[in-house]
Design a protein around this nucleic acid. Structure first.
Length: 716
DNA sequence: GAGTTTGAAACT
DNA sequence: CAGTTTCAAACTC
């Protein structure tokens, strides 16, 4: 292992003899050197990738004239941040807005100074939703829109979680923006441009989300890659500490670098895009839960593209009640792509690439495509399936078990009513749907949107998540008026009469939550928590063993899965993750089976994942060193339970009664009787991301030449 | 796959 | 707001 002279002198100086250099000790010392050997694969790729890229980006002549070329990335980032905050774009404006924080706070519970960054991203998302993107007052517009969408937005800064972009117009707008702008321009350090809403049009690229944890040590890139998957983003962090540019989606490999250096990046990107667009089919009205979308840079992986994502677990259930996502989501056209997350660590930087909240049941090619093309490291929510092949996905979609992305089969509603799951979920109907006379298609976008508005007008919370999960019984009971109900519907409560709240007919049950006082159900036997009155009438809140088994069976039958009880103890409410130094330590689901998300997944997501302040503190993530060791460790981080918007996890029944998690033959709750009862049927896209699969993926990423996220470290 | 059941959504 | 109807998912066979 020959080191460059500089390195050598750094380590041992010229005094080191060649003999010494050849020794293992020397090699080791070198490896420990703070200065990465130039030949270090990792470091090299990162640095090289970054620099050329940055140069290309920031020196683009035809970039926005207003934007001066930026010589250094670090400066660029800082400047970008500054620009962000100072510019007229919605981003900056939003940054100053308290409201802008909420969504992002999910990632930075501790309120780091990356605030501006995150806010900006969020704001950008807003921008996307904004009808008047060009308006200087993006914020206002966006907020208005959001308000229309979710009344909660008015509830306060912390309440703002609805980034749902129901306005396709905006999406289109964003799309146009992306298209119209030269790639270089987009990357020319213009924060606004960088944060471009992902078009949710057919064939459009998925939106990627960058979340800058802003932590001094960690940055996270959440890349919600669309089916087209191989996308990268340049993120201009606003954090002073870590103004790194994050490029995710795929590794910046030599190929891309070459192209970039040669100034041919745009062509590459476009080409790639066109190729990838084929896979896109399903569009979503609801978008990326994350924060914002950035301009996308296609990264072409050096090595052969993985046929399948390393561990493309799906988020079963994510598609069912995507409406939840709407509550918090922003712009991504394909909200379905949220489930996968990859983490790549680089020195002190950590990128978390959410490679798409993928529609687990993605029967469509998009899913397959996404899987195949996406080179992102994926953190499967469903760690059970390490490598989801397209086939598997299809099968999954078809299966009745946990198929999140179910397709509707509306006949009379034209898929323009809440009856329609697609519509309710905020997604367009797609091929798999068996609907008739469907209007829930891009062609009828206006109709869809207007209908949505109508429905919302009638019931502002119509598209809100059905269920709110929280460890605080009061929340579900509707006692906390200050907290925005993640689910108005649930708040309204179910009205079951014959199902005993033990079937999916019951929204509460389906959502994996207990019935609350708001419910008017009869003979409630909801295993997730009965109505108080029934509890009192019954065993005082406890369910007999026999009955418990039966109930659990019913849950299992219904496909409603609870989270691993073990997870309860492992769940750091805040911060959810074990703090990492520089690595992200993500919990690994049991290799056997991850918690099986159910239909409520979307709900959960919407209710807490992206909106909750403490849902995920990516900052605290540390890259797992080994997945194997965590095999038996269920997801540790769950959505913040105390989040007003509902966490994903539920440690107790709403009534504070004992909850009987369903049997999990799948291994989801292997030891449910051992610990607190935890119900996490729906896996937060994010948290899930951090699940076992996360580690696995991460590991896989490193193993494989392709990884979703590449953290770029700035040079010395 | 067809028919039934169920409860939410929509309507009056 | 309450009652009824409509609807599509969930469920059963």
């Amino acid at each position: 292992m020959e080191m460059d002279t500089p390195e050598r002198s750094k380590v041992g100086g010229a005094s080191l003899s060649n003999k010494f250099e050849d020794s293992p000790v020397f090699s080791f010392i070198n490896s420990l050197s703070p200065i990465q050997p130039v030949k270090s694969t990792y470091a090299t790729s990162s640095v090289q990738a970054y620099q050329p890229l940055s140069f290309s980006i920031f020196t683009s002549p035809h970039a926005n004239p207003q934007k001066a070329p930026r010589p250094q990335l670090r400066d660029d980032i800082s400047e970008a941040a500054a620009t962000d905050t100072g510019s007229n774009n919605g981003c900056s404006e939003n940054s100053a807005q308290p409201n802008a924080q909420t969504a992002l706070t999910v990632f930075e519970p501790t309120k780091i100074n990356s605030e501006s960054s995150t806010q900006c991203l969020l704001n950008e998302a807003d921008k996307c939703t904004d009808f008047d993107a060009g308006s200087p007052d993006h914020n206002t517009t966006c907020r208005t829109f959001k308000t229309n969408f979710r009344p909660e937005t008015n509830e306060g800064p912390s309440q703002r979680k609805n980034l749902f972009a129901s306005e396709s117009a905006t999406s289109l707008e964003c799309k146009d923006e992306v298209i119209d702008n030269d790639w270089d321009y987009l990357l020319a350090g213009n924060p606004d441009d960088l944060l471009i809403c992902d078009p949710s049009t057919e064939g459009e690229e998925g939106s990627d989300t960058l979340v800058d944890g802003g932590a001094d040590t960690c940055q996270f890139l959440i890349n919600n890659t669309q089916p087209s998957g191989v996308e990268s983003h340049l993120h201009l962090g606003t954090t002073n500490q870590s103004p790194d540019v994050l490029v995710s989606g795929t590794a910046l490999n030599g190929k891309i670098l070459e192209k970039v250096q040669g100034g041919d990046l745009s062509s590459i990107v476009h080409k790639e895009e066109s190729q990838q667009q084929r896979g896109m089919r399903r569009r979503c009205l609801v978008f990326d839960p994350s924060v914002s979308v950035t301009s996308r840079v296609k990264m072409i992986s050096d090595g052969p593209k993985p046929r399948k994502a390393p561990a493309m677990p799906t988020l079963p259930g994510i598609g069912l009640h995507l409406n939840s996502l709407t509550a918090v989501s922003t712009v991504s056209k394909d909200l379905l792509n949220v489930g996968n997350m990859s983490v790549h660590k680089s020195q002190t930087k950590v990128l978390v690439a959410c490679n798409s909240l993928e529609c687990p049941t993605g029967t469509s090619e998009e899913t397959s495509l996404m899987v195949e093309e996406s080179s992102l490291a994926i953190v499967p929510i469903d760690a059970v399936e390490p490598h989801n092949s397209p086939k598997k996905r299809r099968r999954k979609a078809d299966s009745s078990d946990g198929d999140a992305c179910k397709r509707c089969s509306c006949k009379k509603s034209k898929c323009l009513k809440l009856y329609c799951e697609c519509f309710a979920a905020g997604v367009y109907c797609s091929e798999p749907c068996a609907c008739q006379g469907c209007f829930n298609k891009p062609i009828h976008e206006e109709t869809v949107l207007s209908t949505r508005k109508q429905i919302e007008f009638r019931n502002p919370l119509a598209f809100a998540p059905k269920v709110i999960r929280t460890s605080d019984p009061g929340l579900e009971l509707g006692e906390d008026s200050n907290n925005t109900p993640a689910s108005a519907r649930h708040k309204r409560g179910c009205n079951c009469k014959k199902s005993n709240c033990l079937k999916k007919y019951c929204e509460c049950f389906q959502g994996g939550v207990g019935c609350s006082a708001s419910c008017r159900c009869e003979s409630c036997k909801n295993t997730f928590g009965r109505r108080e009155e029934f509890v009192h009438e019954g065993e005082g809140g406890n369910v007999g063993d026999k009955e418990e088994e039966d109930l659990e069976d019913s849950q299992e039958k219904a496909g409603v899965k609870n989270f691993d009880p073990h997870a309860v103890d492992l769940i750091p409410i805040t911060p959810p993750f074990e703090t990492c130094g520089t690595l992200v330590k993500l919990p690994c689901y049991s290799s056997a089976k991850p918690p099986k998300p159910t239909y409520t997944l979307p709900t959960v997501i919407s209710s807490g994942l992206y909106t909750s302040r403490h849902l995920i503190n990516l900052k605290d993530l540390t890259t797992p060193t080994s997945c194997g060791e965590n095999e038996d460790t269920p997801a540790r981080y769950l959505i913040n339970n105390d989040s007003p918007h509902g966490g994903v996890t539920k440690t107790s029944s709403p009534n504070g009664k004992r909850v009987s998690p369903p049997h999990s033959s799948t291994g989801a709750s292997p030891n449910r009787k051992g610990g607190r009862k935890l119900i996490l049927k729906s896996i937060p896209s994010f948290p899930s991301l951090a699940g076992d699969g996360f580690n696995d993926c991460f590991a896989n990423n490193h193993k494989s030449s392709s990884f979703s996220a590449t953290s770029i470290t700035r040079g010395p």
